[in-house]
């Protein structure tokens, strides 16, 4: 069983549309949405939720005002400026609190307790394309990396149990914590880029990240015809750095139209763009065998 993750560095380059297209073209995969901050893949896959689980991503410090003697030891040790004094006692800002519990340990009055956060939910669903694991991080929650890990573990269990050949993962933008959690231990990373200076800048950083974890990397240039000169530069970069180019996909307003109708572009048209996405998918399948 192989795991492939679609990332981009820069947001909005087409990760979710490509992931959904691959899901529609394969018969034997598990699909996972690891962009738990802004999970959009469900919009195209129309999942029927089979299992719901609560996710607790950490703890928050809470003060018992009756016990607080206002010694302010907690304020002194808090590195996150989450605690301040008011007339009656101390106040902890739950949004700034990182849940490190240092205040809880140093409070001489035992006036601070750590409460579990309900930081989101994750789901196992059925779709017509196969099993789908996805999640929803709570508003202003932290620890998205941990939620990503849970989604991936669940997808892996399903893949092993049902003998599925592949896990296709829709990754988050950026290069930080949730991205690292999404790519570690996968067999391949597909970087979706676009021919813009920002797209290229961000692509180089995610390629470096994948290289840091020694994961095989492929690049696909989306909307390549928006700036062919820049597309050539990306191709040059890939060639010079030994990165496999999995293909190029044209700009087509039908992609947006398909999203608006909550449909997957490869299922709506048999045109050039569908052929291009198919060819990318064939390259990936052959290389990952």
């Amino acid at each position: 069983m192989k795991q492939m993750v679609v990332i981009s560095g820069k947001g909005g380059t087409g990760k979710t549309v490509l992931t959904a297209s691959f899901a529609a073209m394969t018969k034997n995969a598990v699909i996972a949405d690891c962009d738990v901050d802004a999970a959009d893949l469900y919009i195209l896959l129309h999942p029927e939720v089979k299992e719901r689980h609560n996710f607790s991503g950490g703890k928050t410090a809470v003060v018992n005002m009756d016990k607080c003697s206002q010694c302010a030891k907690c304020i002194e040790v808090c590195r996150f400026n989450a605690i301040r004094k008011n007339g009656k006692g101390v106040i902890i800002d739950p949004i700034s609190c990182e849940g490190c519990a240092v205040c809880f340990y140093v409070c001489p009055e035992g006036a601070i307790r750590m409460e579990e956060n309900l930081s989101g939910e994750w789901f196992i669903s059925d779709t017509k394309y196969g099993p789908f694991v996805h999640a929803k991080l709570g508003v202003a929650s932290e620890n998205s990396g941990k939620l990503v890990t849970i989604v991936r573990q669940s997808a892996k269990l399903i893949a092993e149990k049902e003998n599925r050949e592949m896990i296709i993962i829709d990754g988050p933008p950026g290069i930080g914590c949730p991205v690292i959690s999404s790519i570690t231990g996968t067999d391949a990373v597909l970087v979706v880029t676009e021919p813009t200076l920002s797209g290229v800048h961000d692509m180089v950083r995610v390629i470096e990240l994948a290289g840091h974890f020694k994961i095989r990397t492929f690049v696909v240039i989306n909307k390549y015809d928006l700036n062919t000169e820049m597309t050539e530069k990306i191709e040059d970069y890939c060639q010079k750095n030994g990165i496999d180019l999995a293909g190029k996909i044209m700009y087509d307003v039908r992609v947006t139209k398909a999203i608006v109708n909550r449909k997957i572009v490869v299922e709506c048209s048999d045109g050039e763009i569908t052929q291009q996405i198919k060819s990318v998918w064939e390259v990936l399948q052959n290389e990952l065998k």
Binding site: G11, G12, D37, A38, I95, S96, L137, V139, A140, S141, E142, N143, S144, P172, P173, G174, G176, P178
Partner: peptide
């Protein structure tokens, strides 16, 4: 700000 809705975004817009 960065995209998303979690810690880096909160830290940026707070």
């Amino acid at each position: 700000a960065p995209p998303g809705t979690s810690c880096p975004v909160i830290e940026s817009i707070k």
